[in-house]
Simulated assay, not measured.
Amino acid sequence: MDIATCLTLVDLLCAREFPADHSGYDGGAEGPGYFTVELMAGQDLAAGYPELRERTAADFHAHREALAERIGDRWGRQPPWGQLTVRVRMGRGEEIPEPWAGLGLRTDVLDVWRAEPAGRWVALGVADRDPADDIRLLLAVTEIPPP
């Protein structure tokens, strides 16, 4: 998905009403107070090919950085937010709400903004932690503040 299309999707999700129930669908999940969508996915990289997986991950991170730069032009540049603390807190039994729990398990770093005037949070990250899963560029829009 190109950057212009991603930005349009951000705007759409910032304006759209959240669903009443949790559900998953091809490329994402949604529930009360959040949407998580897959912007890009590396196909069949879980089955091996470590060099290809590494190159694909680098490409996805570059796309995330380019998109983060454009979103940062709207709502300000923010330092990346590491997810290790979220994983540690969950490991200690703390309840972390979605979409933050899922993003924390799947990504190492998120770019996060407060989307004004909608008052929603926008998060962008590359899900590449699990070598048994495909790499994905994820976008989340939520009314739930980061933990």
Rank of each mutant, 00 (worst) to 15 (best):
T85Y: 00
A47C: 09
F60Y: 14
W100V: 07
R74F: 13
E69I: 00
E69F: 09
L45R: 06
A41E: 15
G28E: 03
G24P: 02
D108E: 15
L67W: 10
Y25N: 09
Q83S: 01
T56R: 12
S23H: 11
Q43V: 14
Y25M: 10
H63W: 12
R92D: 13
V37H: 02
T85P: 04
W81D: 06
A68W: 12
A62E: 14
E95T: 10
G42R: 06
R87D: 01
T36G: 02
A58C: 10
G93E: 10
R53G: 07
G24K: 05
R55G: 03
G24F: 12
P19V: 02
E30S: 15
A47W: 04
A29I: 10
V88C: 03
G42A: 14
F60E: 03
Y49I: 09
G27C: 05
A20M: 09
A29L: 00
L84Y: 07
L105C: 07
G91I: 06
P19R: 06
H61N: 11
E38H: 07
P19I: 08
T107N: 09
G104I: 07
V86T: 15
L67E: 05
P97H: 04
G33V: 12
A46T: 05
R70I: 03
R92W: 06
T56M: 13
L84C: 01
F18H: 13
P19K: 09
P19Q: 11
L39M: 07
R92S: 08
V88Y: 02
P19S: 11
E94P: 02
A101N: 04
